[in-house]
């Protein structure tokens, strides 16, 4: 890869990679370091990737693995039950417009990491469930489960913040009774 190609890759991907790293690490310094490390690894190993159209996916996968490698020595993986998603949780609908960016990011950071990673890829990069499965190396069903659960957790966190601020909850609360399963 030429220096120009590398620069184009950096220009196109460094910002979304940083945002993904920030969502994972919760620290701006760590996010910047993870982003740099990812491009260092690309410079070292990217030539092994034959299909250049997969460079973006490679970068996100590598950043995620690097994050997991670093975290392995810090905190053991949270033993979170990927249980069935409760429909009630999926129906919580806080008013996202009522929050500033910092609050939204704070709520996202409060979502447990196994759900936060797919959620961030979904929101930030508009990755499909298939692409998320590739990046995180998990089955498609797991991605869908984590997206559902992750969104429910995010809504719950935002709802808590909304209630703390005394805002009215905008939700399907009244509709839920009417809702049929059919």
């Amino acid at each position: 890869m030429s220096a120009i190609d590398f620069q184009q890759l950096v220009d196109g991907q460094y910002a979304p990679l940083y945002r993904f790293a920030l969502s994972l690490s919760k620290s701006e310094a760590d996010a910047a370091d993870l982003t740099q490390q990812t491009f260092f690894l690309w410079a070292a190993k990217g030539h092994q990737l034959r299909d250049r159209s997969k460079a973006k996916s490679w970068l996100f996968t590598t950043l995620y693995r690097e994050f997991l490698n670093r975290r392995r020595h810090e905190v053991r993986f949270l033993n979170i039950e990927l249980d069935e998603v409760c429909e009630e949780e999926m129906s919580i609908s806080p008013n996202a417009h009522a929050f500033d960016r910092a609050t939204l990011l704070g709520a996202l950071h409060e979502v447990e990491e196994p759900f936060r990673a797919p959620l961030t890829l979904f929101y930030l990069e508009q990755f499909s469930y298939q692409e998320i499965a590739n990046v995180l190396d998990v089955p498609i069903g797991t991605v869908m489960s984590r997206l559902s659960r992750g969104k429910a957790l995010l809504r719950r966190r935002l709802l808590s913040k909304e209630e703390l601020r005394g805002n009215k909850v905008v939700a399907f609360q009244s509709d839920r009774r009417k809702e049929s399963d059919g």
Binding site: Q7, Y14, A32, D33, Q36, Q126
Partner: peptide, 25 residues
């Protein structure tokens, strides 16, 4: 959520640091 998260600011010197191969943090 997408709109807000995509607007998160990136450190101004990050791009240059990557391109220069300099570790900043």
């Amino acid at each position: 959520i997408t709109k807000e998260l995509c607007a998160i600011e990136v450190p101004v010197d990050l791009r240059e640091s990557i391109l220069a191969g300099v570790k900043v943090s």
